[in-house]
């Protein structure tokens, strides 16, 4: 997090304008990052309402802290760090068990090659309803520790690189890989019946 980014931050102009008090520029940043951060928070909390509330708090905090942002990292890693920290704090307060409140699955899943693959032929998933699959996946995710869920969310679902995740979490890449390994192993156990 302390390394200045090698490439210019693509958000630099919006950041500078926001720091000068241009709220429209900050709106643009919010609009740009809301879908990404929503996915991160949602997959960590498995609750839509909590996600929306938390996202408000995250952007409000980012806005208040923006004047102190000095470009030592990209805005992308900075806002992700804020989001992850606030989400983890929220989860500690909320406690382990909560009612899932899941988003709708878009129709695109029907055409996803991975979905077609796992639900075709001899796959044990071929009879599984999409919503049942969604519920099982979310339950399995919620069984992971928060640290493990974070790396799975960032790497597998959001598609971030190990190096970015290590910057966001402030841990080494080795730690990220190790957490991923143990998280995948646990998920494999939780979803064993889908693999037989």
């Amino acid at each position: 997090m302390s390394d200045r980014p090698r490439n210019p931050d693509p958000d630099q102009e919006l950041i500078t304008r926001s720091q000068e008090g241009d709220t429209r520029a900050f709106d643009d940043l919010v609009r740009k990052y809301t879908p990404k951060l929503y996915g991160m928070v949602y997959n960590m909390t498995s609750n839509r309402e909590d996600t929306a509330d938390l996202l408000q708090d995250i952007f409000a905090k980012a806005y208040r802290s923006l004047k102190r942002f000095q470009g030592m990292s990209t805005f992308y890693t900075w806002i992700y760090s804020i989001s992850v920290n606030m989400t983890l704090n929220f989860l500690k307060k909320r406690g382990r068990y909560t009612k899932l409140s899941l988003d709708d699955v878009d129709n695109g899943i029907q055409n996803d090659p991975d979905f077609i693959k796992v639900t075709s032929g001899d796959s044990p998933l071929r009879e599984v309803n999409i919503h049942e699959l969604q519920k099982r996946l979310n339950e399995a995710m919620m069984k992971l520790s928060e640290d493990h869920r974070t790396v799975v969310t960032l790497y597998d679902i959001q598609g971030l690189q190990h190096s970015d995740i290590s910057k966001i979490l402030g841990v080494s890449e080795g730690t990220v890989r190790s957490r991923l390994f143990y998280a995948h192993r646990q998920l494999q156990n939780y979803l064993e019946d889908f693999r037989k």
Binding site: D104, V105, D106, G108, F115, L133
Partner: peptide
């Protein structure tokens, strides 16, 4: 873990 990763990646289709 390839199979399990493919399964987990399906969560990308959950949208607000």
């Amino acid at each position: 873990f390839d199979e399990i990763q493919k399964l987990i990646r399906l969560k990308r289709h959950e949208l607000p």
